[in-house]
Computed example of a mutant assay.
Amino acid sequence: MQLALPGFEDYDRVCEGLQEKATKELIASYTDGREMNPSAVFICKTMINLSRNFDILNAKGRDTSRVMAQLLSWFQELEDKLPRASELKPEVAALLGEAKA
């Protein structure tokens, strides 16, 4: 955690745009109840940075399609890294259950 001077704790959120807010909400809901590994954390941080870039480009009237495609690609990567237990194939779920026992 980076320390900030009193009164500047939320300074980096001053320009938080709609896509960044939506991405943070998506990440929070998707990762709720899941164990995060370093790879998943990296993906989430990358998604937030991409959403900031999207908001900046959008505010300037520039093309955002590449950034949105990258954001979608990283979300799909996150889905691959953090599948829900119920989304696992039954045989894989059974093996995980046996390993925990």
Rank of each mutant, 00 (worst) to 15 (best):
Q2A: 08
Q2I: 11
L3M: 09
L3H: 05
L3D: 14
A4W: 10
A4L: 02
A4P: 00
G7Y: 14
F8Y: 12
V14Q: 13
G17R: 03
G17K: 04
L18C: 04
L18T: 15
L18N: 14
Q19V: 14
Q19N: 03
E20D: 02
E20V: 01
A22T: 05
K24N: 04
E25Q: 05
E25S: 05
L26E: 12
I27M: 00
I27H: 06
I27G: 03
A28W: 07
S29Q: 11
S29L: 09
S29F: 05
S29P: 00
Y30G: 00
Y30R: 01
D32A: 06
D32Y: 06
G33V: 10
G33T: 13
R34E: 04
M36D: 12
P38T: 06
S39H: 12
S39Y: 14
S39M: 14
A40C: 08
V41Q: 13
V41T: 12
V41N: 04
I43D: 02
I43A: 07
I43R: 05
C44P: 05
T46D: 03
N49P: 03
N49S: 11
S51L: 04
S51I: 08
R52K: 13
R52Q: 03
N53I: 10
N53E: 12
N53M: 13
F54L: 10
D55P: 07
D55A: 12
D55F: 00
L57M: 05
K60N: 11
G61H: 07
R62G: 09
R62C: 01
R62A: 13
D63P: 06
D63R: 01
S65E: 12
R66K: 15
V67Q: 05
M68G: 08
Q70K: 14
Q70C: 09
Q70E: 15
L71E: 10
L72I: 11
S73Y: 09
S73A: 15
W74K: 14
W74G: 00
W74R: 15
F75H: 12
Q76F: 05
Q76P: 00
Q76G: 10
L78C: 01
E79V: 14
E79Y: 07
E79S: 03
K81N: 15
L82E: 13
L82T: 11
P83F: 08
P83E: 08
R84P: 01
R84S: 07
R84W: 01
S86A: 02
E87H: 02
E87M: 04
L88T: 05
K89N: 09
P90D: 06
E91L: 04
E91K: 03
A93G: 07
A93T: 11
A94Q: 06
G97S: 14
A101F: 00
A101E: 15
